[in-house]
């Protein structure tokens, strides 16, 4: 499931972007070091393959509904984790641009959820461990199945955490979790079946293709440690960013602006984490606070009379809720429409 820009906060989007960009840079370096010039074309074409195969809908047995391939696991099996991560990231980028799947800010989240987990967790720790050195049909089946399920479960968990941390959706953590995990268990089983079917097909028809990727031996002890360290760093950064975010009640943009001007007040992380947890459990307590702080912040920047009146009206943060807001909103829409028409007319006359 793709995250959408509309559901994330800049802090979460930014953090996951950073994590994804870091992983990407690392993978690019690894792929470059491999010096396998065959891979340039192979990665590109396999990306296009996943992209196309995702669009062939198949019928899910017993339910009659239709599903489609995710593909992260197949790529990891064929290309090894580094190249697979890059290929998956490129596929998601094209989808974000052309099909508006997710969005540009949420792209970081989506790459992380759909590429990182299958390539760097499910593939090395599940698929490779089960298949071992001598693959058999049964082993490939079980390995693909388990790896796909775990990969998707982690991905779904990612979606839940990112959504809840963003605070745009009201869904509480546990409810959302209970909603997402079972759905993705089903999706994961289907993904596993399909992955197994494709991998077994290739293994029977052209075992050399699979052997090539096994021989590449991309995973060594060092790498696992790097990934673990990377994950830890990501977790730390995310945690800190989120707690700042939650504690100061400033959204990312304002937070960064204040960071630049140096006037931001940073609270102790302990306090922040505590508060963010509290906020998740007890959202009603944080609403008035939120409103108050936002307005306090607006005072600083906007000193117009109408805005200073707002705090009295709030809990209804601002605007959107007042009659003035409605009238103004309509007028703005009208203006935007007029601008559009004018520009268009100008263009046709020119």
């Amino acid at each position: 499931m793709h995250m959408a820009d509309a559901l994330i906060s800049p802090a979460v989007g930014g953090t996951l972007w950073a994590a994804t960009a870091g992983t990407m840079a690392y993978c690019c370096r690894k792929v470059k070091l491999e010096m396998d010039d065959r891979k340039v074309a192979l990665m590109g074409v396999l990306g296009a393959f996943i992209f196309s195969a995702q669009m062939i809908n198949f019928t899910i047995p017993a339910t009659g509904s239709s599903g489609h391939l995710g593909g992260g696991m197949i790529l990891a099996i064929l290309l090894g984790p580094y190249a697979a991560f890059l290929v998956m990231a490129s596929v998601l980028t094209v989808q974000a641009l052309f099909f508006a799947d997710g969005g540009l800010l949420a792209l970081g989240c989506n790459i992380f959820n759909l590429a990182f987990f299958p390539c760097f967790i499910a593939y090395p720790f599940i698929y490779k461990k089960i298949v071992g050195k001598i693959p058999t049909e049964k082993r490939i089946f079980i390995a693909s199945m388990l790896a796909a399920v775990v990969g998707l479960q982690l991905g779904a968990l990612g979606v839940v955490i990112e959504t809840v941390a963003s605070g745009i959706s009201e869904l509480p953590f546990t409810t959302f979790l209970l909603l997402m995990q079972p759905i993705h268990l089903a999706i994961g089983i289907v993904e596993g079946l399909v992955t197994a079917a494709v991998v077994i097909f290739i293994w029977k028809a052209r075992p050399d293709i699979l052997r090539y990727s096994l021989e590449a031996k991309p995973l060594k002890g060092v790498m696992v440690r790097n990934v673990a360290l990377g994950l830890l760093a990501v977790a730390l950064v995310t945690g800190t960013a989120l707690s700042w975010f939650a504690s100061s009640r400033l959204d990312g943009l304002e937070w960064s602006i204040e960071g630049v001007t140096g006037s931001g007040e940073l609270q102790e992380p302990d306090h922040g984490i505590h508060e963010s947890l509290a906020a998740i459990q007890e959202k009603s307590a944080f609403l008035p606070d939120y409103g108050f702080k936002t307005n306090e912040n607006e005072h600083g920047t906007a000193e117009s009379e109408s805005v200073t009146e707002a705090p009295a009206q709030w809990p209804a943060v601002d605007a959107g809720t007042s009659t003035a807001g409605l009238v103004g909103g309509l007028l703005t829409l009208l203006t935007a429409g007029c601008i559009g028409l004018l520009l268009r007319r100008k263009k046709t006359t020119v």
């Binding site: 906060s9 800049p10 304002e254 601002d318 959107g320 203006t335 935007a336």
Partner: peptide, 20 residues
């Protein structure tokens, strides 16, 4: 996108002009 996403979760009227 970042500016739009950074808006308060209850904002409606302030989001509309972004359509420009």
């Amino acid at each position: 996108i970042i500016t739009v996403v950074s808006m308060d979760k209850y904002s409606i009227s302030q989001l509309i002009p972004f359509a420009v």
